[in-house]
């Protein structure tokens, strides 16, 4: 069972308080109707299934109910970094 540091509660908590919510940084297309079936399928179904350090979304289901980002090694399961969406946005902005 993982131990995940919730960036909102600012504490490590056991995995069973959280739910995984898929790969991070997959933006919903601005104009879905303009996409081909293949491009739409790529957004809906296809994921990188990376071996290595992987950014994913988690939600603190039994806690603050906030969604946040976790960078996790899919090999060792080590959590390398956690961040809120705001933190990542401001990082990207600067």
């Amino acid at each position: 069972m993982f131990s995940i540091h919730c960036p909102y509660c600012k504490e490590p908590r056991d995995q069973n308080e959280f739910s995984p919510a898929g790969e991070a940084f997959i933006a919903r297309p601005e104009n879905p109707e303009a996409l081909s079936d293949e491009q739409w399928a790529d957004y809906v179904f296809y994921r990188t299934n990376l071996k290595g350090d992987h950014w994913e979304q988690w939600v603190h289901t039994s806690g603050c109910r906030k969604y946040f980002l976790v960078k996790r090694s899919t090999i060792s399961h080590e959590v390398i970094e956690v961040a809120t969406f705001e933190e990542i946005d401001s990082e990207n902005a600067s």
């Binding site: 939600v59 109910r65 906030k66 969604y67 969406f85």
Partner: peptide, 13 residues
């Protein structure tokens, strides 16, 4: 509820 929160927090903040 969780799905609605996801859209609000991750896409439509």
């Amino acid at each position: 509820y969780s799905t609605l929160e996801m859209w609000l927090q991750t896409e439509w903040s």
